[in-house]
Design a protein around this nucleic acid. Structure first.
Lengths: 225, 225
DNA sequence: TCAAAAGTGTTAGATTTACACCCATGA
DNA sequence: TCATGGGTGTAAATCTAACACTTTTGA
């Protein structure tokens, strides 16, 4: 049996994370300068290796936790990146994952400690190896996901204004939306609940805060934006 | 440098193929009985190992070629499947791919030689390891792809009737379509060209044969079904 | 008092859906 | 001549997109 497997060769497996955040009306990802060879000093996604006793998904979740201190993030696999020479040192195949985080939940000291920066998705520099490809694919999958499932909330505080939500969708889709049409559609979705709370940080008048009610959504999952 | 990688452990990497075909008005996939341990005798997807000198995509293309004798198949990655115990023997992570083939192009002797059978997608038995998960994910991705890009033609002969095309979409979506509405939409797509040829195999009157013109599509890629 | 963001409805146009009959042919 | 699959258009309903003004409040 070992013979059967043994005819073939093994590879190192890594995970790379595309961490999306929404801040200052812009969609951003976390990247940093590589601290190790090969590629030291180049801009890069944050990643890690898959250990022998953990699934690939678990490796991604662990890596995300190391980085953010957060568990139960919304996370999806982007795919396997397996060109022979993608890593200049050894044969390493990497599985990319994207995650959505609320920037305000994220301890900024952890960001600094890992030497990471929030980079506007539209101004991502050249990255190490094939990481730009990963980012592009993640971005497409993520915007497709946000258009068909109510997961955009993962990028916002648990209480948010409709203007924030609209700006988020505008940033993700790269196009402006009509305010009245947007709010009309939101009103049709019972799982986006208006609270009596008012946010006055962004206007003098103040705006009602809303929340996503997952229980209501589970009962009547009709989302379309 | 080797130290940096060496702290971690390597895994075997395999590819598994979900090969979609369309025949007798049904969407089918190719599966066979495993000829090796572990899992000998169980229904399984066809797969292979990734060699050290080939990319993961190349390994999938090679595996598909071994199996079908066909190159340049439409092929897309489904994703990485990496549970620790997914392979009872060793730690093997598998990257699944789906491919679309025209059953008529496929040499049936090759199918028999590999011990494979066409199985209706709605009657797939329990498969080895996590292969059912792969099939489900591939199916979703494939139907999404067919709804947004004109690749359904890859499942049909290069000349096809509109009824064939409609039956294909019905099989993929699992619901019937209105004949007049379907044909109205096809008529709007200039890259689906009517020929003067007539197919008389499926009716006495005969039906016009159509073809997909990729050049016209490249010029005006508006597809929606 | 004014600047800045919040909030609110209507209508025309476009798209989608439902639906039924005649045609051509070979057996 | 009849059974079988091929082929065609219209109208109602629904959905989408465009559009402008009033409100509230802190500075």
């Amino acid at each position: 049996m070992t013979n059967f497997y043994g005819e073939h060769s093994k590879v190192w497996l890594s995970v790379d994370c595309i961490i999306f955040g929404f801040d200052e009306g812009k969609l951003k990802i976390l990247i940093g300068r590589r601290k190790m060879d090969p590629g030291r000093g180049e801009w890069s996604l944050y990643g890690g290796f898959v250990a022998s006793d953990e699934s690939v998904d678990d490796a991604a979740a662990r890596t995300l936790f190391e980085l953010t201190g957060l568990r139960n993030l919304f996370m999806r696999q982007v795919g396997a990146f397996g060109k022979v020479d993608r890593d200049p040192g050894e044969r390493v195949v990497s599985i990319a994952y994207y995650a959505l985080i609320n920037v305000k939940d994220y301890d900024d000291a952890l960001r600094v400690q890992h030497g990471l920066e929030w980079m506007d998705i539209n101004a991502v520099p050249q990255l190490y190896s094939d990481h730009n490809e990963m980012v592009e694919k993640a971005r497409k999958m993520m915007s497709q996901k946000l258009a068909t499932e109510p997961v955009g909330f993962r990028l916002l505080p648990s209480l948010f204004t409709l203007t924030q939500l609209q700006k988020l969708y505008e940033a993700v889709n790269g196009e402006e939306l009509d305010k009245r049409n947007f709010r009309k559609r939101i009103k049709e979705m019972d799982f986006i609940e208006k609270t009596e709370l008012i946010d006055k940080t962004s206007s003098k008048r103040g705006a009602f805060l809303y929340r996503f009610n997952n229980r209501v959504y589970a009962h009547d999952p009709n989302f379309k934006l």
